[in-house]
Every structure is written in structure tokens, then in C-alpha cells.
């Protein structure tokens, strides 16, 4: 309906009425609880992280073990809470590394344009071409398995998507006249980007990064599930899912579902929080 399309209504300067966003609040609370659990795990869990009880292997939920036990008789409820720490920390590490690499590439490309932009675009495209998981497995085959390698490798796999996104946001930001105003004041490129442009970009990028956090957590869990990352006795959720595999054959689903649900919960919550944050904070021209 193009020719009948009407330009957006003249801004009346009015702030629209805002209804309470229950979904956002719920998701934020859930995330908050998960983070809290990671921090206070040792104080709130009924059992220690590494308990072994050969008499209670893969037992169903009971009064002593609210969610049942795992392959070594450890309490699933306690372990899944303990698992919040390595899972969240791993995702944070992954994201931090990806942000540093990706933002540097993206903002450099946007600032320099020309052949620098073209070169970085080609490099990013090559990285994109590799399926993330395969890429990281390749790195692991070279450097050996382990949680640090997994985190950095997966971080590297996530950096192209951050590079593309930050490049787009940076391009828009750099087209605004205030950037020229700073240039006229003699502010050099690096300082301009770091001190003035990046902070202005932040509201447009934060929401997206929160969503990526959930993605990162799930991807890292996959890696750990495959045995390439965290090793036992870590309570990382991905690892827990793998350890519960054998029980599935015997019809006992608890050991896989409990950590699996934990992962899913965090991914959904970060998606909701991230998207809503984006909507609220993003600045459009």
C-alpha cells in the first residue's frame, strides 16, 4: 500500500501510556534467581557438589532427593544449582571474548570503510561459512579439549555475528554530525570511537548481546555435551546431560531433563529480556 502509505504521525511529543510488562518482569526475575543460585550455591544446596552414593544411583525423586539422583548417586537438585556457576561463567567468558574481537572488527570496518572494510568483510564471511560447532571442534582438535579452549573457541565462532551487527550500528552512529563535530575538535579516530561513539552505541547493542548470551550458553552446553569442553567432575549443565544419557535407555529421564530444562529456561529468559531491553533502549534516528 505504498502510495497510500502515510508517513508516521506527526510527533505530538506525548509519552504513550505504558502497561506493566509482566512477561519481561517474570523473565528478569527468573534470570535473577539463576544468577543468585550461581552465587550462593554452596549455602543453599542440601548436598555437596561431589557427593557419591553408590546405593542411590539414578533413583527417582524422593523426600531425600527432590529431583532424584545421577549416575554416581549425587543429588540432582544440588548439582543443577551448582551447575549454574560453570554454565553462566562459561557463557560470560564466551561472550566477553566474542565482544572484544567482534566489536573491534565491526567498528574498525565502519570507521575506515574502503579496503579495510572490504577485507574485514571477507574474513568475516569466511568465518561465517564454517558452521560454528565444526569450527570449534577443529580448534579443539588442534589445542585439545578443555573448558578454556571451548570457551575461547566458541567465542571466536560468535565474533563474526557480533562484528556484522556492531558494524551496522557503528555505520549509523558514525553518520551523525556529532562525530564530525568531534573530529573538528581534533579528536583522533581511536579515541573518538572508544570514548564517544561506543558509549552512544551501547543502548542499541545491549539488548542484542543479552540474547546472544543465551545462545552462547546453549552452544557451549552442546560442546560440553560432546565432551570437548568441561570435564567431570564439573556440574556444567551440558556435561550433566551427557552423563544422564545412559539412564535414558533405561527409562530414567530425570538426569537429562533437569539440566536440559535449566538450559532452556535461561535461553528463553535471556531472549525475552534481551528483546524487551532492545525495544526500550534502542535509539532510532
Amino acid at each position: 500500500m505504498s502510495i497510500d502509505a502515510v508517513p508516521p504521525p506527526v510527533a505530538t511529543g506525548a509519552r504513550p501510556k505504558r502497561k506493566r510488562d509482566w512477561t519481561f518482569l517474570l523473565a528478569a526475575v527468573v534470570l535473577g534467581l539463576v544468577i543468585l543460585a550461581a552465587v550462593v550455591a554452596p549455602w543453599i544446596t542440601p548436598y555437596d557438589e561431589a557427593t557419591v552414593d553408590f546405593g542411590a544411583i539414578w533413583s527417582p525423586p524422593s523426600a531425600e532427593h527432590w529431583l532424584g539422583t545421577d549416575q554416581l548417586g549425587g543429588d540432582l537438585f544440588s548439582r543443577v544449582i551448582f551447575g549454574a556457576r560453570p554454565s553462566l561463567l562459561g557463557a560470560i567468558g564466551l561472550l566477553a571474548f566474542a565482544i572484544v574481537v567482534g566489536t573491534t572488527i565491526g567498528v574498525s570496518a565502519a570507521w575506515h570503510r574502503g579496503w579495510v572494510d572490504a577485507l574485514l568483510a571477507r574474513i568475516t564471511d569466511v568465518m561465517f561459512a564454517f558452521p560454528g560447532l565444526l569450527f570449534v571442534v577443529l580448534i579443539i582438535s588442534v589445542f585439545g579439549a578443555g573448558s578454556t579452549t571451548a570457551i575461547l573457541g566458541m567465542g571466536l565462532a560468535f565474533s563474526p555475528v557480533i562484528a556484522k551487527y556492531t558494524r551496522a550500528i557503528a555505520l549509523e552512529e558514525l553518520s551523525r554530525p556529532y562525530v564530525d563535530a568531534y573530529r573538528l575538535q581534533g579528536v583522533g579516530g581511536l579515541r573518538l570511537c572508544w570514548r564517544y561513539v561506543l558509549p552512544n552505541m551501547a543502548p542499541n547493542v545491549v539488548g542484542y548481546l543479552v540474547v546472544l548470551f543465551g545462545d552462547g550458553l546453549a552452544s557451549l552446553a552442546t560442546l560440553n555435551f560432546l565432551g570437548f569442553g568441561s570435564q567431570p567432575p564439573s556440574s556444567d549443565w551440558g556435561l550433566m546431560v551427557q552423563e544422564g544419557r545412559a539412564a535414558v535407555v533405561q527409562g530414567i529421564l530425570g538426569p537429562t531433563i533437569v539440566p536440559g530444562l535449566a538450559i532452556a529456561l535461561v535461553v528463553v529468559a535471556t531472549n525475552i529480556v534481551g528483546v524487551r531491553l532492545s525495544d526500550r533502549l534502542a535509539v532510532r534516528k
Binding site: T12, A14, R15, P16, K17, R18
Partner: peptide, 11 residues
Amino acid sequence: SVPTADGQRPI
């Protein structure tokens, strides 16, 4: 008038 966070605003 349009409804806003601060009540009805006359345009």
C-alpha cells in the same frame, strides 16, 4: 486529545 502517561493531552 491523546492519552499520555501524564493524562489527556490536548492537541
